[in-house]
Design a protein around this nucleic acid. Sequence first.
DNA 1: TTGACATATCGGTATTATTCGATATAATAG
DNA 2: CTATTATATCGAATAATACCGATATGTCAA
Lengths: 104, 104
Amino acid sequence: MTEIDIFKALSNETRLNILKWLKEPEKNFPQQQAHLPKEVSIKGGVCVGDIHDKVNLSQSTVSHYLSIMQKAGLLEAVRYGQWTYYRRNEDTIKKIAKFLDEDI
Amino acid sequence: MTEIDIFKALSNETRLNILKWLKEPEKNFPQQQAHLPKEVSIKGGVCVGDIHDKVNLSQSTVSHYLSIMQKAGLLEAVRYGQWTYYRRNEDTIKKIAKFLDEDI
DNA sequence: TTGACATATCGGTATTATTCGATATAATAG
DNA sequence: CTATTATATCGAATAATACCGATATGTCAA
């Protein structure tokens, strides 16, 4: 989870798109959280399948990309039943924006 | 010169270091601009050889790295005689910081 | 307990990045 | 002109990344 890993994770169009889409999950994933019961909410989280549906890549590639972004700290994963919900990790995103602004 | 190219250029320790060093050229390159006559000044610029001296990589690799950063828009090159002086392109650096802050 | 679904991982191939030494080019100094 | 110095480019080896399809794992429902 170094700056280098973060920049590497950002060096790909699809991964950048996913990060952008997750800024407005309700808008970009209308079917969002359909699997979750009423009383459970994973704020900002979208499951792998829904992300996969928006991307013209195989399921394994999407899963791999999400894991790259998670390892870089850009996303966090919350498992609910058979689904994994990914959402932005705003802390890291802020941190790297600050790094770029102040240290580079 | 897309955001992707910029993030790729930033995804390398040496290149990141060069960018940081060029923030304070006088401090990091004491021999700086020794080849330039008194009346010529390339503000913030450091020649390839001086950068090469600070890096444990071959001359061809350093030259290649500088060209990657230039193509990404992070650096600009000014030729003076047989030397090429590279300096930061603050416009692009600001632009990418803003992009990360606002669009990601 | 079996089947179906969601996700992760594995093993492979194709492309791209890293890095080098050798050589080409360009400018200067004699 | 020629030798020297600075930088760029070329060609090649190795490592990393981008994908894929197949399979494993984990969860739920019947």
